[in-house]
Simulated scan of single mutants.
Amino acid sequence: MIGKLILEDGSVFQGMLASGTKAVGEVVFNTGMTGYQEVLTDPSYCGQIVTMTYPLIGNYGVADIFEQARQSFVRGFVVSELCGKPSSWQAEGSLISYLQARDIPCIYGVDTRAITRRIRSHGTMKGVIVSADAQESEIAELFGRPPFIEVVNEVTTKEVYRIPGNGPRIAVMDFGIKRNILNSMAQAGCDLTVLPAHTCAAEVLALNPDGIFLSNGPGDPKDAPVATVRELIGKKPIFGICLGHQLLALALGGDTYKLKFGHRGSNHPVKDLSTSRVYITSQNHGYAIEEKSLAELDVTVTHRAVNDETIEGMRHNSLPVFSVQYHPEAAPGPDDSTYLFEDFMRILNKEMNKARGN
């Protein structure tokens, strides 16, 4: 079936629909060469239509080991060439079948580079995926739908659950956490209790955790539970990534702003300011911390994006609190930054020894 992607500015890109389902959402782009299944199941993409810039998508198929959440939360998927016959020893099926079975709207055979250039020039914007013969009234109705801001509520766990371990007890605030983040902490030896996003601070502290982890997630950080994070600061060691990083900044008194087109991909260079070493990182965020807002706060910027100098990491100068903007566990992407989980473990052990009087 012939379809089209229509952007809010009136741009139209025609292609083929992998399914007949229509879609509406914020159109963004991801620059990763691989990892399309991880992208589809990263809850941070909730509410968005994702355009993959790499031309061939689906060539190694799909497999359960790449899943990052209980389901896909993307509103739509845009690719140039959609491979129907994958080749990989891990493949359990084709991407086309995967999309159709989950009713994920997908348009392929479009000029994804042109879409990306449009977004880079004009910023992210709303878009719709419809059939080529869609009526103007149907398109107008889709564009007229109000933005959905309760995205964290959509992606967070509905129930408290535990991943047992022999190490420090971690209360994980799930704002849209990826499976591999939990795997990385479990492999580090942590005993994890995963909590819904809107769990109050008293309930978190009632678990008497050794530390608190603030996860990645979708949407504007100002729509997430900033007040809860503010109550947790100073009570326990805290490690935040992505949305958790932004929430920490807001809770400490800083501010955030929306980037023109965000950072999404598995090839973003980030500089560690303490060593001058550059790490290649996996990223997925549309918001960043406002530099000026940290000037009077007791924090130090620890990492910066090489491409645009935005803040990619910070730590509190007197409390065991630190965060990064990128995804240190990758999935997809390089594992350059998995050392951050080890850093968290060192901080936890230091604070636990201090509490014991050692």
Results as ranks from 00 to 15, higher is better:
275 T>M: 08
275 T>N: 06
276 S>R: 05
276 S>F: 12
277 R>P: 11
279 Y>K: 10
279 Y>A: 08
279 Y>P: 01
279 Y>D: 00
280 I>V: 11
281 T>H: 04
282 S>F: 10
282 S>D: 07
283 Q>F: 01
284 N>Q: 11
286 G>M: 13
286 G>C: 08
289 I>N: 00
290 E>P: 13
290 E>H: 14
291 E>W: 03
291 E>C: 06
291 E>G: 03
291 E>H: 04
292 K>M: 07
292 K>R: 15
292 K>T: 05
292 K>L: 10
293 S>K: 15
293 S>E: 00
294 L>V: 03
295 A>Y: 13
297 L>I: 00
297 L>Y: 06
297 L>H: 11
297 L>T: 00
298 D>C: 13
298 D>L: 11
299 V>G: 12
299 V>T: 14
299 V>H: 09
299 V>W: 06
299 V>Q: 10
300 T>H: 12
300 T>Y: 07
301 V>G: 02
303 H>T: 06
304 R>C: 06
305 A>L: 11
305 A>D: 13
305 A>T: 14
306 V>P: 02
307 N>T: 15
308 D>W: 12
308 D>L: 05
310 T>S: 13
310 T>I: 14
310 T>F: 07
310 T>G: 06
311 I>C: 01
312 E>Q: 04
312 E>G: 00
312 E>C: 01
315 R>F: 08
315 R>I: 06
316 H>C: 11
316 H>Q: 05
317 N>P: 07
317 N>L: 14
317 N>W: 04
318 S>G: 01
318 S>H: 13
318 S>R: 12
318 S>A: 02
318 S>P: 00
318 S>E: 14
319 L>G: 02
319 L>R: 00
319 L>E: 04
320 P>F: 07
321 V>H: 05
321 V>F: 04
322 F>H: 05
322 F>I: 01
323 S>K: 09
324 V>Y: 06
324 V>G: 01
324 V>E: 02
324 V>D: 03
325 Q>F: 04
325 Q>S: 05
326 Y>L: 09
326 Y>D: 12
326 Y>T: 03
326 Y>V: 02
327 H>N: 11
327 H>C: 10
329 E>D: 07
331 A>S: 15
331 A>R: 14
331 A>N: 15
332 P>K: 06
332 P>L: 11
332 P>C: 09
333 G>I: 09
333 G>F: 10
333 G>H: 08
333 G>R: 04
333 G>V: 08
334 P>H: 12
334 P>N: 11
334 P>M: 11
334 P>L: 12
335 D>Q: 14
336 D>W: 07
336 D>M: 10
337 S>W: 01
337 S>N: 07
337 S>P: 00
337 S>E: 00
338 T>N: 08
338 T>R: 15
339 Y>W: 08
339 Y>R: 14
339 Y>I: 00
340 L>C: 01
